[in-house]
Design a protein around this nucleic acid. Structure first.
Lengths: 344, 344
DNA sequence: GTTAGCACTCTATAATAACGAGTGCTAATT
DNA sequence: AATTAGCACTCGTTATTATAGAGTGCTAAC
């Protein structure tokens, strides 16, 4: 055993207390807790050992202790009893799905909003990975002589569009023919495979039927080749600013910048595997996240992983509660989405 | 004349200097300026008068002076020589339009981004007011038995979509018929007028042709009835945080909150008339904007006002430069957009 | 092994002093 | 009559010192 029961108890109480108070915890205040039956001197000895092992730290030589990252890690891995979501929170979460919303994006967005309101932290949701969606329909809407819009609809109801210019001298009927052929052949194909499928199987076919096939196809291909980045939704972007650890303008600037960049957070969240993941402080490999923890969960339709939902808070965040909430929301989300989009 | 030439000169130098240094200006440092030929004592007398009139203020009883809101207002209205945009800035702005981008939204977005980078303030763009767009095409794409997506394309290439559920027992051919009729009759109609036009002119027609017309029409109407709020784009949301006046965590929180809300800013910008407008500090009627100024400009296609582009900075912002930039960008934007979308 | 006792450390807070930038006023100068 | 030099005064800033209090580590007693 790495730690004695008593050391675990003390560590647990320190972390719990610090999460609540944001103040260093001294031996005397610990000794007054009900669950702690030994004297402050004993606690001081144990704390000295815990500090030697790197689980807690002092802010200065005669201060009380605060959890170190290692301490939080141990707490999350070993001491955390996955807290049951309380009734009020349960009701709030169920309300996300009470309204009849059909758009996947909207549901996901609402989840982010409510999650941030419940926790008072910042929530981030990676919207469905569009690239795994399957093509439902491709349409071309001409705007004027040389401009048109290509619209893609996927099976989950995601709509993407892009404007493009026709090459000069294109026969409108050719466009129509082409769109028809593409729709016939490409319905149900995942967006990622569109490109190769077109070149392997359909280019030939098109060449037979359509005169100015080359330029037209290239134009459309370019249009289809959309970034297909998962969209990032936020809830309560500024919530985290009300945490006492962010009373420093420089820290705020760094954090806000990172949140605005989106790319950084996007990558931090995306690389996590399925299920609940906790990344504490520097585990995130990002200087702006030094004082932050990120808890991620994934949601899916059926077996297919769809996206992630995450909470960004201070390292001193309420791990237990947030993990409970995320677990609930992500499974509920998966259930609802599976119900809505599985049978298609 | 409200102010003597000398007073105007002093006010101007104070404002210019304060915009640069963010430090209160004393009589001695003023007297050392080349353009100022009189002694510090004279300046002190003049400054006392300017203060009595409310154009400048002290931060404490023996401090130098800083411009008051009234001072900034006078400066903007009377002392500002609309600065010519310098060559480097000119080149940068032209680069916005160098690439061939066709989507109105993208152009507008890029303008915001570049404007914020040039000024190091926050830029906000109200995207084209979609409600004034005209309908190009309405399409319904069925996803499965009871779900479909309604897609609207407008003449400027804006695409909006909404998912909805069919009422039970709808004949698919009826849907198609209805869409055809709607497209025939509604092409070119501004989105705002869709509702009334449908009820006044088309409801009759539909009733004749389509059996379950009522439920279907209602569903589609609901779908068409989209918020049609102008979209708000931002550039450099956190830029303004690097200004020295925002060294206070509370101020940052308020400001960031307001920016995140979007609604507040949206209304602040939207109510401004065509052309360049400067709103200084409390003129914005928003407590979070107490230390901020907002400069807005409008852009248009042909004669039709389309949207606004704005810069949010501290009251101590570089009015002259920003006004010059906004003037240039907004007219360029109007030109390009007119060229792209006027002839349709 | 546990605890009481105590000297020591460090932060936070307040009080005090010295400095200097800047003002307002008065009297001298132009 | 307008301008300027001179000077006392104000107030923010910075540095210094003192004090209180929370908490520790160590030693010796239980």
């Amino acid at each position: 055993m790495l730690l004695t029961d008593r050391q675990e108890l003390i560590l647990q109480v320190i972390v719990d207390d610090f999460i609540r108070s944001a103040q260093p915890i001294g031996s005397r205040s610990l000794s007054k807790k009900e669950e702690i039956k030994f004297s402050s001197a004993t606690i001081r000895n144990e704390m000295a050992d815990l500090e030697d092992m790197g689980f807690i730290e002092k802010t200065h030589s005669s201060s009380g202790r605060i959890p170190s990252e290692k301490g939080y890690r141990f707490y999350v891995d070993n001491l955390l009893l996955p807290q049951k979501v309380n009734r009020a929170d349960l009701v709030t979460i169920k309300s996300i799905f009470a309204e009849r919303i059909y758009e996947l994006e909207k549901i996901v967005q609402k989840s982010a909003k409510i999650l941030s309101e419940m926790t008072n932290y910042t929530s981030i949701v990676l919207g469905p990975a569009v690239k795994d969606n399957r093509l439902k329909k491709l349409q071309i809407v001409p705007l004027n002589k040389d401009t048109a819009i290509a619209i893609i609809v996927t099976d989950t109801g995601y709509v993407e569009n892009r404007m493009f210019h026709f090459p000069t001298s294109i026969d409108p009927s050719d466009v129509e023919k082409m769109v028809n052929i593409l729709n016939e052949r490409l319905a149900g194909v995942p967006l990622t495979n569109l490109n190769s499928k077109i070149y392997k199987e359909i280019a030939m076919l098109l060449r037979q039927h359509i005169s100015s096939y080359d330029t037209l196809l290239n134009t459309i291909m370019e249009t289809l080749n959309m970034p297909a980045h998962e969209k990032v939704f936020f809830g309560g972007k500024t919530n985290i600013l009300s945490q006492p650890e962010f009373n420093d303008v420089e820290k705020i600037r760094n954090l806000m910048n990172m949140i605005e960049q989106e790319d950084g957070l996007y990558n931090l969240i995306r690389k996590n595997p399925a299920g609940i993941n906790v990344r504490i402080g520097t585990e995130n490999d990002n200087s702006a996240m030094e004082n932050c923890s990120l808890i991620t969960a994934t949601y899916s339709i059926g077996e297919e992983k769809l996206g992630s939902i995450a909470v960004l808070g201070p390292t001193r965040m309420e791990y237990s509660r947030v993990i409970g909430l995320l677990q609930l929301i992500s499974t509920d989300l998966s259930k609802v989405l599976t119900l809505l989009y599985q049978n298609k």
